[in-house]
Every structure is written in C-alpha cells, then in structure tokens.
Amino acid sequence: MPNGKKISRNVFFLGLTSFFNDWSSEMIFPILPAFMAEILGIPKSLIGIIDGVSESLASILKVFSGYLSDRLGKRKNLAVFGYSLSTILKPLLAFAQSWLAVFSVRVGDRIGKGIRTAPRDALIAASVDSKKRGRSFGFHRAMDTLGALFGTLTTFILMKYILGPQSHRTIFALSIIPAVVGVMFIIFGAKETKTVTPGEKPKLSWKTLPKNLRILVVATFIFGIGNYTFTFFLLRIRTMGIAMAIVPLVYLLYNVVYSAVSYPAGILSDKIGKRTVYAIGLGMYILTALGMAFFNSPTWAWILMASYGLHMRFTTATARALVSDFAPEEIRGTALGIYHTGIGIADLPAGLLAGFLWQLYSPKVVFSVGAILATVSLLIILTIKEK
C-alpha cells in the first residue's frame, strides 16, 4: 500500500495507460458524430441505436470479466487484453463506408473496454487502502481526461491547420499511435496484485451484494437512462451554433475542466464523503441538462459543456470508489463489473430514447427527460448511508 500522499505504482502506470488510450480515443470521438451524420448520412435515430447497442452489448462483458478476475485472483492480464483489442480495432474506422461498418468497429472497441474496465478498477482498489481510494480513482480519471484533452487538441490542430476539415479518416488511422504506447505502459509498468486465495469461488449473484451497493447500482442505472451518450451533447452544441471545426475546442474545454478538478474532487470525496460528492455531481447534471434543453446560443454551449465536465468528475470516479468501499474484497471485481454493466445496459434504452425523442420531437424534450431521470436517481442516492 502507498504511504502518505504518494500515488501507488499501479495507480501511476494505469493512469499513464489511460492517458494514452484516451489520447487515441478522443482523437476520434469529437468528430465521429459529425462523420456519421454528415459524411455517411446516418439518421439521428440510427446513431442512437449504434451508440446504445454497442455500449450495452459490451457492458455485459464487464460483470463477467470482473467475476473472472475474482475467480483467478488476477486482474492485469484481462486489462491488457481489453486495451489491446481496442487499440487494434479503433483505427479501422478509417475504412468505414456504412453504418454497419461503424457499428462493427464500435462494438469491438466497446467489447475491449468491457473486458478491461472492472479488472483494472479492481486492481486500482487493491493497490490502495480505502482512505485513499477517492484520490486514487480521481488521479486515474484525471490522467484519463488529460489524455482526452491531448487527443481533442491533436484533432483540432490536424483538422484546422494541417489536414483540413474533411480529414476524419486520416485522423482515425493516426489514433493507433498513442494507443500502442498506452498498452506498453500497462504491460511493463503495472504489477499484478493477487486478492483472492486459491480455491475461493466468488458467486456471481445480485444477492451477494451489500444493500447499499444494490441501491447505488439501481440509482446509477436509472440515471444512466437519462445520461445520454456524449454523441448527443456534441450533436446538440452543433444545433446551438458551434461550427464543425470548433466542436473539438468546445470538447477540449470539457476535458480541461474535467481534468483540472478530478484529483481535488477525489480528495474532497475522501474528506466529506463519497455519497455527498456523488449527489452534488447529479445536481450538476440536472442543471446542465436543463440548460441544454432551454438555451440555444453558442455562448451557452461553451458554459454548459464546462458544467458537464464538472458533473462527470463529481460522479464517475466517485461512484467507482463508492462501489469499491461497499464491496468486500473477495467480490470487488464482480461488484465493479455489475456496476459498470448496469450503466452500460442503460446505454441501450438511453440511446434509443434520445434518438427517437430527438427525431420525433426536439432536443428540448430529450434533455428535459434526462433532467427528470437524474432527479429520481438523486432522491434514491440520498437514502444511502455511507459508513
């Protein structure tokens, strides 16, 4: 275990892996919605299905990969395989000519994420004591988001000054470079931390989870239905008057805010309580969603994307730390897998809901419904008593 305020070796190298992996992913993500909608001509409803189905199918693997890591007592190899799979598949978007090609790559990439997420988070949790989990997950998310910042800035520079506004495919291909670097860091830097003794067989069962953890999973599932994939936020700021070439810059602001507050917010959650910080984050989402629903100027697009960055930091890493605190060590990988799977499964109805509400009504209806679902989740979270 690390002492004092030091970040453990595993947390540091896993942070570097996430930094480079997100550098790769966020070279792609800010321009992917426009690539689908404006270049391939994919309808918004079908974009919602692509996002929802790919996230949900992949998320089913999270509970099984977490469970498998508990059974084996090992986390690193599964995480390495998941990162490697995504690294190979993401650049193939450069060759996509149809919605089916985009869907296939997205599913494969998300499967890689599904395999690696729970074992990686369990490895982070096992590398520190409970009093430092908030800051450790905060550091990891800060590195993750800092990589996203670099990726977004890379795409902006390439598209604006070097390759031109129609250079989507070249950027997709170049994204393999930082991804490979990230895989090298986890292979040669992270160390296995065995947490389950031979012969132990953790049960894959909802009933094995503590009550607080079950409440948390239910609340995050409900919130997940209204917390639409980022694709719809990027599509929304386009309708608020943000030019295509400027979208990566607005997304860059989101990542700057997210990265800047990640580690301090993690420390705050260790001091005042993770449930409290998570509830604050849900409140931020409610305000952001209402802003997305009722404001339409480019100025508000910038403000709301910054607000969304604050929300994401106060909820994402904090929830993982909460799950790790609530779950006994011998089922922690399984518990994290169930948590991530719940969120991922919610992505399917979320994508379908957002896509069809947008197609049939308007963005105002889409984000108003999101605010309502987040409010329900917040009320449930407030019933949890954190030890």
Rank of each mutant, 00 (worst) to 15 (best):
M1V: 11
G4N: 14
G4H: 12
K6Y: 13
I7F: 07
R9Q: 14
F12V: 03
F12D: 00
L14G: 10
T17Y: 01
F20H: 07
F20D: 05
D22V: 02
W23Q: 03
M27A: 09
I28C: 00
F29E: 10
F29G: 02
A34G: 08
A34N: 09
F35M: 06
M36C: 07
I39G: 00
I42S: 03
P43K: 03
L46A: 11
I49C: 02
I49F: 15
I50Q: 04
G52I: 01
V53N: 08
A58R: 00
G66A: 12
G66K: 08
Y67G: 07
S69Q: 06
S69G: 05
R71P: 00
G73M: 03
K74I: 04
L78W: 05
L85R: 05
L85M: 13
T87H: 07
A94T: 13
Q97K: 14
S98L: 11
W99E: 15
R106Q: 11
T117I: 05
A118D: 03
A118Y: 06
D121P: 11
I124Y: 02
I124W: 01
A142S: 13
T145A: 10
G147L: 01
F150Q: 02
G151T: 09
T155R: 05
L163R: 03
L163K: 06
Q166P: 04
S167W: 08
S175F: 04
I177L: 15
I177V: 15
V183D: 12
M184Q: 00
M184Y: 10
V196Q: 12
V196F: 08
T197K: 13
T197S: 11
P198I: 06
K201F: 00
K201N: 11
V218L: 12
A219P: 02
F223H: 13
G226Q: 08
Y228K: 08
T231C: 06
R236I: 11
R236A: 11
I237C: 03
G241M: 11
Y251S: 04
Y254R: 05
N255F: 09
V256G: 05
V256N: 05
Y258S: 07
A260H: 00
I267K: 15
I267L: 14
I267Q: 10
I272D: 06
V277P: 08
A279S: 15
L282I: 15
L290C: 03
T299W: 14
L310Q: 09
F314D: 00
F314A: 06
A317K: 04
S324V: 06
D325T: 10
R332D: 02
G337I: 01
I338V: 14
I338T: 11
A350E: 00
L357G: 04
S362V: 12
V365M: 13
F367W: 04
S368L: 12
V369G: 10
A371F: 02
V376N: 04
S377R: 09
I380N: 09
L382A: 00
E386G: 10
